[in-house]
Design a binder for these strands. Structure first.
Lengths: 180, 180
DNA sequence: CCAATATTGTAGCGACTGCTACAGTTGTAG
DNA sequence: CTACAACTGTAGCAGTCGCTACAATATTGG
């Protein structure tokens, strides 16, 4: 089925952009093909079927996103866990992250519904994010791995509230979290 | 358009069940009608159009879910914030909550994509959940409202990890959260 | 009872879905 | 040059989508 690797590599960025901007609702063959300057006929030819196509696009997005993470953050150390959270939450407020976050919740929803491929994709994103986060932990942190898990849990909760238009709920909550 | 209120009230539970079990992907007129023992023709007749239909079903689910919350938890006090988190996370592990949680992430995804009605629905669910949670805070808690916000943020993060099949990430993270 | 109103079934429209059959054209290896 | 593989456009299939026109029945108020 799928023949040329290079052909797919040329299509994937355009396909990814379309999905990031328009969501999984608009991820049907003909609109995707149009966005990539080709035809539904050719998408099936190159990727075999739609499920493989979507899976490849999501993997491509996850990959380029994880590389963007490394590029956006310098190696400058952070002083505390609070500062690490604040920095990440600030970063996710940037306009360039919006499309990815919108897609992220669609991936989570697909994973929760056991749609084939979604759970694997979501896990791979979170695992690499955890690894990256562990390195961002403040120097001398007693438990960087545990801290990364804790902070990422809080961040994801905060991102959910942002996604539904209640960004202030976690903000003030986190401040009050000190005594837990 | 929409005529009989009682007709809608009879249909909504059946429609809600179908959406809870099969997700928004399967929320098209003909399958919904079949699940409710009627026809697509009649769904449009009673609800006007599909958007209103979905909106009404989601509101009905949110309503019955919030009533289920009050019923499932007795008035027995909790000793600490940790215990409050543990109790809620335990409750959401129950089989009866699974369909609602799967639907919840679809609502979050819709809200993040600004699909009409989703953000309002998600907010109304979280606001009532926050109010309920505030009452569940341990007696003598210095800041029940802030605590509710904090704990709900953590819980939602933990639920996301459960949804994508990584339930152990937050568990161990929360334990390490004491020092934050 | 009769007229107005509420409810329902049948059939279908035009658009879209993933995908494929067929017929080419293009590029390349011998 | 020729044979073979890689690629691509056109057209269409069978199914689903939200929704509606039309006609019929059921119910209810005068």
């Amino acid at each position: 089925m799928a023949k040329s690797e290079t052909a797919r590599q040329k299509l994937l960025p355009l396909l990814a952009t379309h999905i990031l901007e328009n969501g999984m609702r608009a991820a049907s063959l003909r609109p995707l093909a149009k966005a990539a300057g080709t035809s539904d006929r050719m998408l099936i030819y190159h990727f075999g079927n739609k499920q493989q196509l979507i899976s490849d696009i999501l993997a491509h997005i996850a990959d380029s996103y994880s590389r963007q993470l490394d590029a956006s953050f310098g190696a400058d150390q952070v002083a505390s866990r609070e500062q690490a959270i604040a920095r990440v939450l600030d970063f996710t407020n940037s306009e360039e992250m919006r499309p990815f976050l919108a897609l992220w919740w669609e991936i989570v929803a697909g994973a929760a519904r056991d749609i084939p491929g979604y759970k694997e994709n979501a896990q791979s994103i979170m695992v690499s994010l955890l690894a990256w986060f562990e390195e961002q932990m403040p120097e001398g942190d007693p438990d960087p791995a545990g801290g990364a898990r804790t902070l990422l849990t809080i961040i994801e909760g905060a991102e959910m509230f942002k996604a539904i238009g209640l960004p202030d709920i976690p903000n003030r909550g986190i401040e009050a979290a000190r005594p837990l």
